[in-house]
């Protein structure tokens, strides 16, 4: 299983803080995005947003990054701290 968490504006847009999907057939972040859009087509516009950032196990990664069962994947908008 892959645990997925969402933050800030994205969490509010999706109305979802976290969910879990089976890891089978998901090898990369980009593939995971497709699976999520398949689960809820209304999410397409948010996952097509080029500014969307992703992290695997607390490390910022790009769309080609590989993922496996047990990983925690996060999606969030550009950060605005400080």
């Amino acid at each position: 299983m892959i645990k997925i968490v969402f933050f800030a504006a994205l969490r509010e847009q999706l109305d979802c803080a976290e969910l879990t999907v089976p890891a089978a057939d998901i090898a990369t972040i980009n593939q995971l995005k497709q699976v999520l859009v398949g689960l809820n087509p209304l999410w397409q516009t948010y996952f097509e947003n080029k500014a969307l950032l992703s992290a695997v196990n607390h490390d910022m990664v790009d769309g080609e990054h590989s993922i496996k069962s047990g990983d925690e994947v996060a999606f969030f908008p550009p950060v605005t701290g400080g």
Partner: peptide, 10 residues
């Protein structure tokens, strides 16, 4: 910190 640390302001 401004571009890498995962903080968000509302």
């Amino acid at each position: 910190l401004k571009v890498k640390a995962p903080f968000w302001k509302k």
